[in-house]
Design a protein around this nucleic acid. Sequence first.
DNA 1: CATCAGGGCCCTG
DNA 2: CAGGGCCCTGAT
Length: 323
Amino acid sequence: MTAMKLRKYTTVTLRPTAPFNFDGTFHKPSHFEDGCSLWRHGSYWRAIRLGNRIFGIRIDDRGKLVRPKLNVTIFSNRKVSDKDADTIKKELIWRFGLDENLTEFDKLMKSDKRFYPVFKRWRGMRNADSEDLYGLLMISIVLQNATIKRTVQMMNALLEEYGTRVEFDNKAVWLIWLPKDMTDVSEEELRSLKVGYRAKFIKRLSQDFAEGKVDEYRLRGMDKESVKKELMKLYGVGPETARVLLSEIYHHHNTFEHIAPWQQKIYSMLFYNKKFVSAEKIKKDINRQYGEYAMLAVHYMMEDIFWRRKNEHIEWLEKEIRL
DNA sequence: CATCAGGGCCCTG
DNA sequence: CAGGGCCCTGAT
């Protein structure tokens, strides 16, 4: 583990496309806590890398649903140029989908008699993840075939060994290691952190990224099918991980093509109020109703139930999520 | 104490 | 294209 302390340099303004929902976009209760970001109502902290440099980012909600405005405070260990600030702005816009035009989805929500109240609650929320492609890949790998508790254990062990502890604004967050940091790490060393057979995935993915075989930025301009094809080539990436990356990193919303068993149980209750509906039926129904926005619609439903879980005990949900 | 499946994917036949 | 195997952990 390495540590670094950053101090405040500058503040820039971002104006997301309206409507925009701050808390829904910057906090995802359905995700496990990895310590890489912090959220309070109206505020968000995380560290990001641009090239070799590390920045601390604090984002504050300074607007309204229909007139969104974000203040971004940038922390660093040396001067932040206008160019740096601009690059950071652009990166945040991409990662959080701040320039997405969701007019069509908005219309779709309004015409949805059944779930309009749910959609209205989160109107303007983006399906986004603040990690870069490699970062979310690492997280996806430790999620595979594991319970949440074990996932958290593995992620903590990896971060404590290879991560960077970034301190700024009286907060501390983890930043995931770089692909090249794994070059000299053996599979045995990784296994000693109890990640099991995932050690092989982590090694090979890190090597491929370090060698520049994957270009996260190139994929940003590509259509969904092409991105999916590229992602599926990655060692350790199958249908479920590809779906996660496609929707959260690349903001493709028509990606409701794979339903994991645990999701199937939750969707059955959410959409049918039944214990078990076949994955094929769920897929067909949801894609027919929400079309190009099927994954985004499901994301809204999923996050909504996990937000509710923060305040109330939902018996059937507790049984379905294995912590 | 043993057995088993878990927020998948690879590999083999 | 179906199914076995994989690391480890906690639940049963």
